[in-house]
Write a protein that binds this DNA or RNA. Sequence first.
DNA 1: CATCGAGCATAAGTTCAGCTTAGGCATGAA
DNA 2: TTCATGCCTAAGCTGAACTTATGCTCGATG
Lengths: 319, 319
Amino acid sequence: MLDVRRLYLLRELDRRGTIAAVAEALTFTASAVSQQLGVLEREAGVALLERSGRRVVLTPAGRSLVAHADAVLQRLELAVAELAGARDGIGGPLRIGTFPSGGHSIVPAALAELTQRHPALEPMVQEIDSARVSDGLRAGELDVALVHDYDFVPASPDTTVDEVPLLEEPMYLVTRTAAKNTGPSDTLAELLGPYAEAPWITARDGTTGHAMAVRACQAAGFQPRIRHQVNDFRTVLALAATGQGAGFVPEMATAQGPSGVVLTKLPLFRRSKVAFRAGGGTHPAIAAFVAAARAAVSCMRGPGPDEKTATRQGGLRNR
Amino acid sequence: MLDVRRLYLLRELDRRGTIAAVAEALTFTASAVSQQLGVLEREAGVALLERSGRRVVLTPAGRSLVAHADAVLQRLELAVAELAGARDGIGGPLRIGTFPSGGHSIVPAALAELTQRHPALEPMVQEIDSARVSDGLRAGELDVALVHDYDFVPASPDTTVDEVPLLEEPMYLVTRTAAKNTGPSDTLAELLGPYAEAPWITARDGTTGHAMAVRACQAAGFQPRIRHQVNDFRTVLALAATGQGAGFVPEMATAQGPSGVVLTKLPLFRRSKVAFRAGGGTHPAIAAFVAAARAAVSCMRGPGPDEKTATRQGGLRNR
DNA sequence: CATCGAGCATAAGTTCAGCTTAGGCATGAA
DNA sequence: TTCATGCCTAAGCTGAACTTATGCTCGATG
């Protein structure tokens, strides 16, 4: 019988690229990972990886074995979720990952709801970039995470992670001065065009927010000159207010904005989602977190829980 | 992550009933099995088994975990099959189980074909009662097996074993004297009724052949008085020829019959199948065995491989 | 080109999970 | 009652899987 622990290592190798990275992620030595993969390969009777320069890459047989590993591990996750459901009550630690702007908006409200309803639950929040969430979930460092993606930056399909949508909100252009008056039906190119030569404020390099900014500007027909790289939207607003450049913020961040900035709604959306290991959606603690996050989003959209009111007031599209 | 080895033990416990039986089947001590199941239960956080007298029975949570174990192990079997397919050539040991009458008819022909086509394959044949095949496959003592079931004795559905049909053949009533002349459309009750008071020759108690005989007679309206219990159909024919009673044989056995017996075709069928671990159907050695068994069956039906001829000559229904 | 760091593999030593042995208790049959 | 069966726990032992140490190759860099 194939050892699932070794299949797990092979899957991590496929995702992370090098044995050293797998070892670091799982707090092993590279030697241990190499040895275990060697045993797996011997058991398999087929070459699963081959050296390529100073790295290793998976053979076709190795990649197809990873697909089986995905299926097996997903089913195990389902079993774990069912066992957790069979236990009476929801409790124990719940490791929650969040992108920064989720951290001070959705998460606190969700946690208040969550801990009140399930006092035995011990939520542990950890800020993490969306791009690293998948790794964190697979490695067990996280159980659930708030993630987002943007138009122009599609989330890469990942069979090891399931997601449920939470919120879709428009992005806003932040500037100090208004461009010439525009109607509500303007295109992205028309809205961003006036700032083609302006300095830009984007999220830090390597993040999805950064990629979104660059590609939105490219779609508008220019390459942005990026001057500032900050992830915190309040800082983006503050920098824009002092004339340091133009930037993007999601609608969620517009409420806290300083005076002196002009906000222009863009035909460009950010989708927030809750992610968890594939198969884990039925885990009671995760289901409870999803419910609490949904409730938190509903509250944020307006004073009342009424969906129509909220939609009118906030303009957020609930999904 | 749940340990699949422990899930495997839980599944065996579900199938075999006692920890001692699991230990014996897997050549462990009962202590080892008990300890591992204890660890699994602790990890699960839910009671998986509870003592009932001096045995243990699975709780609902335990049984649902077994369902997950089935799914996981099936997927692992699929992975193994795919790896075997990725290796070049078919070789190595292949443990074949067979019911006795398959052993001297289908199996030799199939093996001749198989070893000629795949010289590196080392087939190992083992006679085994169909009722124990499932255990043997799961424990890895067998890779593939010839099994059969009868009308009135439906094979219990088993998610851990896949089967492909091989042959469906009518059963014959064996007697020394013919009953009053009957037409070809007679019912089972009319055909068996004349022998309600006769002594019967059946397969040994506890086998599917025995159950088939009893239930067929019951369906015909009487309880058979069983005098002889032998599994070998040639012996059944020989006993019937000496007037020791009436019995059942499959069509396959009628060719070798001694003179002095009357064979009456019954509206009662035996289905021969090839069984293997769920998910293992794509394993090249198993696929090759299935193909060889099919070929052997085709040959047996007549001198030519032509299906129509064979059907006319032998009356076997190919499926 | 020489040098250096990154990445993987192997050898050897170490540790702990998981096995066996031993023994005890409860159950149910003789 | 006595005995066999089945399960559990304690204690000791062994090997699988880890770490440490080392070497080798590749590719970047001055």
